Computed example of a mutant assay.
Amino acid sequence: MNMAAARSVLVTGGNRGIGLATAKAFLENGDKVAVTYRSETELPDGVLGVRADVTDSESIDAAFKEVEAAHGPVEVLVANAGIANDKLLLRMSEEDFTSVLDTNLTGAFRVVKRASKGMMKMRRGRVVLVSSVSAIYGAAGQINYSASKAGMVGMARSLTRELGSRGITANVIMPGVVKTDMFNEVSDEMQAHYLAGIPAGRFAEPEEIARVIRWLSSDEAAYISGAVIPVDGGGSMGH
């Protein structure tokens, strides 16, 4: 651990699941870590929690100002905040669709835009967008969610073309099925169905996703940008 090299890291939706595991991974690395959250939550010692709503640009700006004052300009941004609202197409209202897009995809745009200002001045930065294998594999009932997560690929690749010469990378991580609170609500029948399609024969732990995010944000991954990295036990290969 090299405290002299501690970076300012911000993880959106960092109060549970993959986001919380990611915050802890960066904390273990000696970085200065902040997370955004929407509802009251317990956070590990050393993690700065800032209340923010990714659907509200003013809320995001206020959160960034708080983080910048405490830790300096954000050098590593993990856009992880997301929601799901699964319904079959013919039962999905337009609002069901646009609300998921507004949080997952436009929300990522809002935080990336705000973070990029500081990164361009520093001429360095790491952006990691947390997508899902649903983006490329698809899932019944997830037309809104899959579309929002697929959009992150185009965002990261365009961002790479715009900012790549400034020492800024932008990559997409695609987790498979991860054991989080959200997954605990899935029926045993559906869990068995998912498991049958995973060559690794098990579901992921949040920490396994977090470690790949941390590595993508490291100096070792400085020449990787615009990439889509599946972390899914082999479940999506070939798609």
Rank of each mutant, 00 (worst) to 15 (best):
V133K: 07
L101P: 04
V33N: 02
D31W: 03
V50E: 00
G107T: 03
M120N: 12
G167K: 06
W215I: 14
N104V: 09
G138M: 08
M120P: 13
G49M: 01
L163K: 13
G238M: 06
H71I: 02
Q142W: 05
N144W: 04
N144R: 08
M174W: 10
E40I: 15
S148W: 00
D188A: 15
V133G: 07
G125H: 03
A210P: 08
P175C: 08
R166N: 14
E207T: 13
P230L: 03
K121R: 13
M182D: 11
A222R: 15
E207A: 14
S218I: 10
N2P: 11
S225W: 02
L101V: 12
I229W: 04
L20F: 06
E185Q: 14
A150I: 09
F109R: 07
E189G: 10
L216R: 01
I136W: 11
H71F: 09
M152T: 02
A140D: 13
M190H: 15
G19I: 05
K87T: 07
L163M: 14
G125P: 05
T55P: 08
M92P: 05
A204S: 15
A52W: 00
A221E: 06
I136K: 12
S236V: 06
A63F: 00
M174S: 15
D53L: 04
S59G: 03
V76S: 05
G201I: 07
T106I: 13
K179Q: 15
N15Q: 10
M155T: 12
I198M: 11
A84G: 14
A70M: 10
D61E: 14
G82Q: 00
L48K: 06
P206K: 05
L20S: 05
G125C: 01
G141A: 04
D61P: 07
I173H: 01
K113C: 07
L43Q: 02
G201K: 03
N29T: 14
K117D: 13
E42Q: 13
R202C: 10
M237T: 13
A210K: 07
V111S: 01
A204P: 07
V133Q: 10
P199W: 06
A192I: 14
S93I: 08
I224C: 11
D232Y: 03
A227T: 10
G154F: 07
L90D: 12
V178Q: 06
L89D: 13
